[in-house]
């Protein structure tokens, strides 16, 4: 288990293409946060930067079995804990029993 050195407030926007992080929390109006959670952005889940579209913005994230495109300004408001490549949590934070 090796974590990369993290700044206290690392955002989804700081993850590079192909990198994975664990969702922490959202710094945005409640209804947007709620919409994101409906789409699978739930704190504790893994999120991966799946694709950078033409122009580099928005980027596509893979989360909870779906892919969702977000603009960079929004992804900046989502705090994550970067996850090292070797590490695999498999929904560990969510695993029940």
């Amino acid at each position: 288990m090796t974590y990369t050195a993290t700044t206290p407030n690392q955002s989804l926007n700081d993850l590079a293409l192909g990198e994975t992080g664990i969702l922490k929390d959202f710094d945005m109006p409640e209804n947007i946060a709620e919409h994101l959670m409906n789409l699978g952005f739930v704190p504790g889940l893994e999120v991966m930067v799946a694709r950078t579209g033409p122009g580099g913005n928005p980027r596509v994230y893979r989360v909870d079995g779906t892919e969702v495109a977000l603009r960079r300004d929004l992804s900046q408001c989502i705090a994550v804990r970067p996850l090292h490549d070797a590490e695999s949590l498999h929904d560990a934070a969510i695993e029940v029993e």
């Binding site: 947007i32 919409h35 928005p58 495109a69």
Partner: peptide, 10 residues
């Protein structure tokens, strides 16, 4: 619309 962002499920 302050409180709406571009969120697009693919």
């Amino acid at each position: 619309s302050r409180d709406v962002a571009f969120i697009m499920e693919l």
